[in-house]
Every structure is written in structure tokens, then in C-alpha cells.
């Protein structure tokens, strides 16, 4: 039996059984506060892990206390990645991967961010094993949510993930997939490897 039952006391002093719902994967929230960045700081040096969770209950305990993207300062990046995977190109699991990105006007990504998290931790993607995690980037005029995947050359898996993600978000616009290697070589000039 996968479920773990535990006893918890209510505020009335009574005891009730609460059921913990374990997730398939453990996930870590990471945060990069834009205001701490400086020109001298190497990219990625200001990212810090916040907490690793492994149950549905822990997820909500965190989510309900953490600001949503619309309340973050411009420049902030908030990540949710599988445990043991650092949200960096250099991470060996991410190194050959890429990312799908969906754009939203400033203050309009909160629901999409939540639905992205729920789809990931609930293992709703047919190719969930190919997913590293997700990040929301808060910028001056827009918020971007990106879904990082492991093996960019596996086209069918990337297309499947991209299509399902759009369905989960009810996102009507086209989204693009950029390979990390292309982004490293061409920065903002990198072209989409796939679109859907």
C-alpha cells in the first residue's frame, strides 16, 4: 500500500486520521530574487533551494504561503524542479535538454503556473520522465513560464509534452521549444527547434 496514514490532532483536541498522498517524485522549489542580482554575479549564483516536498499535503503547505508570480518583484525567477536536478543548463540531466515557453502579460500567469505545477507533480504528462521542472520568470512587461525537458533530440516526446502542456493550461497561442545548446550559442537569437 502506497499510502501512509498518520494521526493528527484537531484544534478541539480530538484525533483524526489524515492520509498523506505521496508524489511519484520529490520536487524542490528554488528562488532567485532579481533584486539580489548584480552585474558581477555569475548567472545562477543567486539561485537558492527553498524546500523539497514529496507529498500533496507538503505541496499545498508551501504553495499556500508562497507569493504567486504576480506578486513577485520584477527580475524574480521561481523554479520547481525534480529533486536532485539543479535548474541550470550545466546540470547533467538538463544539459542535453531544452524548454517550452509560454508568455503571459504581467500579472496574468498565476493560474497557468499553478496548473503547470499540478500537472507535473500529479504526473499528468505521458512523457513525465522527460521533464526536469518548470520556472516562471517575472519581467517588466511579461511573465514567462518554461517547462524544461531532458532530451531535446527526442522530438516525439517534446511535441507530446508541449501539446499536453497547452491543453492543461488552455493556452491558445503557439509555443516554441528552444534547445539549451542553441540558447547558449545564440542567446536571444536562438530559434525554436519545435513549435506547437
Amino acid at each position: 500500500m502506497a499510502e501512509e496514514a498518520s494521526e493528527a490532532a484537531t484544534s478541539e483536541g480530538q484525533s483524526q486520521t489524515t492520509t498523506q498522498h505521496p508524489l511519484e517524485n520529490s520536487w524542490t522549489f528554488w528562488f532567485d530574487n532579481g533584486s539580489n542580482k548584480s552585474k558581477q554575479a555569475e548567472w545562477g549564483s543567486t539561485i537558492r533551494p527553498i524546500y523539497t516536498f514529496s507529498t500533496v499535503e507538503e505541496f499545498w503547505s508551501l504553495y499556500n504561503n508562497i507569493h504567486h508570480p504576480s506578486k513577485f518583484a520584477v527580475g524574480a525567477d521561481f523554479y520547481c524542479f525534480k529533486d536532485k536536478i539543479e535548474p541550470k543548463w550545466e546540470d547533467p540531466v538538463c544539459a542535453n535538454g531544452g524548454k517550452w515557453t509560454a508568455n503571459f502579460p504581467r500579472g496574468k500567469s498565476d493560474t497557468a503556473w499553478l496548473y503547470t505545477l499540478l500537472a507535473m507533480i500529479g504526473e499528468q504528462f505521458d512523457h513525465g520522465d522527460a521533464i526536469c521542472g518548470a520556472v516562471v520568470n517575472v519581467r517588466g512587461r511579461q511573465e514567462k513560464i518554461s517547462l524544461w525537458t531532458k532530451n531535446a533530440s527526442n522530438e516525439s516526446a517534446q511535441i507530446s509534452i508541449g501539446k499536453q502542456w497547452k491543453e492543461f493550461l488552455d493556452y491558445q497561442e503557439s509555443i516554441g521549444f528552444i534547445v539549451h545548446d542553441d540558447a547558449k550559442r545564440h542567446d536571444r537569437g536562438a530559434k525554436n527547434r519545435y513549435t506547437t
Partner: peptide, 24 residues
């Protein structure tokens, strides 16, 4: 199930949102 991937739908997960409001 112990033998399969632990999948949770969005609607199922959302049922728990209001029950866990304190930090871990």
C-alpha cells in the same frame, strides 16, 4: 497504486488546497 506511477488529476489535487495552510 504501489505498482504504478502515482498520478493525481488537477481536480483531485485542488480538493486539498484549503486544508494545508501552515508551512511545513
Amino acid at each position: 497504486s504501489e505498482n504504478f506511477t502515482k498520478k493525481y488529476s488537477k481536480d483531485f489535487l485542488l480538493k486539498f488546497q484549503a486544508q494545508y495552510c501552515d508551512l511545513p
